[in-house]
Computed example of a mutant assay.
Amino acid sequence: MKINKVLAQEIADKVMTVIPYNVNIMDETGIIIGSGDANRKGKLHQGAIAAVEQNTIVCLYDSEGPSMPGVNIPIHFRKKIIGVIGISGEPAIVEPFAELVRVTAELLINQEYLYTERRIREQMKEEFLYQWVFRKDQYDAVFKNNGEAMGINLTMERMAIIVKGETIKEPYLKDQEFSFKLNHSSLLFIVPADSDILKRLEQMNTHPRTKIGIGGSSTLVSKSVHEAERAIDIAEKLTLPSTFCYYQELKFIDYLTNKDLSFSEIGDFFQEFEATPKGQELIETLLCYIKNSGDMNAISNELHIHRNSLAYRLQRIEILTNKNPKKFTDLFQLYTGYVIYKMKHSK
């Protein structure tokens, strides 16, 4: 830690508001870098040199070149001399102030150091968050160690949430929750997958044009960030009314407009269905439901089952796939998933 000229002048000015004597601040080489007398700045102070060499208070009773009568006492930071504070005047009169002035100076220096250290730490954390948010590669040991040093656990499942638009204020953040300014209109939150931050955002958001994109949970944050961005993009382009835009609900639309995406999620269900008689029964029910445009009587007659049994099967399909066959968009996804599955797996 070194005393810079700005801090030195600030110390001199503050001390001189409480004592009626000129105060000089010298660096560790004895050069005056802060003073109540601007003409003395940049000059070598012999009393300061002696105070540094002897590591004790030094009194000057006569003028020595540019050095005036007064007392000079070393300033310490972490047991190391980093400068000297001098009070001009008759030593017998000003010496009683010396210890008080030294303590005041060291408190101001410690305060400045802590502020600077905190600012550097915040800047490093912000830079790491930027790398984290946009890193597409898996995290190596070095990156994980850097995250740990910042207090960020990179091994847990995370969820990205982007708030685009206006909110009253940012919600309070809990442990392992982080915020990051993407641009002037979008704020990104990286939170654990089980976070309740959406409830906090719901309480604070009142602007009707605000969109909140929610990505899926992943240990690779950039993946969830991309999903949250896509959720907002899709919702805006299709003028969807919902404030909360879940990528999981819009994933199918993303698939339709981006052939590079994998749509194996629903296809996997059909693979599991085909492996068991009960599952095959559900596939048969779904295809019959589509064929008969949802006419429950026609479907029941064709499958030779009671309407209650049909309702139960449709409910099972919804539970297992998280898609409701009675909802057109969900039914569209189920049928598309089935077609893709059959095209890939049929010989």
Rank of each mutant, 00 (worst) to 15 (best):
R307K: 13
K199H: 15
F128E: 08
T219C: 14
T329G: 04
M204R: 12
S67E: 03
G294L: 06
K342I: 02
Y341M: 00
L201I: 01
I299V: 14
G34L: 04
L100R: 15
E126M: 05
K136A: 06
I152H: 14
N110I: 03
A231E: 07
I31H: 11
G34N: 10
R316T: 05
K80N: 14
H76T: 02
L108I: 10
N322Q: 11
S300A: 15
K174D: 15
R158I: 08
A231W: 03
S224Q: 09
Y130E: 11
L220F: 10
L331S: 07
R200I: 02
E64P: 00
E126L: 06
K125L: 12
T167A: 01
I85W: 05
S88Y: 05
T210Q: 00
I120S: 10
T276V: 03
V84G: 05
N39V: 03
K342L: 04
T285H: 01
S262C: 08
R119N: 10
K43Q: 11
V6S: 12
E236P: 13
E272W: 02
K237C: 11
V142M: 12
Y312F: 10
T239K: 15
A193K: 15
E53Y: 08
K327I: 01
R200Y: 12
L261H: 10
I11W: 02
E274T: 05
H304C: 12
M156Q: 15
D140K: 10
G36H: 07
K164F: 01
I152Q: 14
F270N: 06
N110W: 02
E284R: 12
I19E: 06
R121W: 00
K125G: 07
D330I: 00
Y255D: 09
E318W: 06
K2T: 13
G83Y: 04
V225C: 09
R313A: 04
G83D: 07
M150W: 08
L114D: 09
R121P: 05
S309Y: 02
D137Q: 13
N322S: 13
I25K: 04
I85S: 09
F180C: 10
L240W: 06
S224H: 05
M68Q: 12
Q111C: 06
F97N: 08
R135I: 00
Y21W: 05
L198Y: 04
V18F: 13
F128N: 09
F332H: 03
D137R: 13
D194L: 14
V101C: 14
T243F: 05
P325Q: 11
L188S: 08
K347I: 06
D194M: 12
E166W: 02
H306D: 14
E148K: 14
I162S: 05
F270C: 01
S35N: 07
I190N: 11
Y139Q: 08
K169W: 03
T56P: 05
I234L: 15
I152A: 12
V94L: 03
I290G: 06
K136W: 03
Q176R: 08
E106P: 14
I82M: 11
M150R: 10
L331Y: 00
Q203D: 12
P325N: 07
G83K: 04
Y130H: 11
I93W: 01
D27P: 11
E166R: 06
E302H: 13
M1Y: 11
G65E: 00
G36R: 06
Y312Q: 11
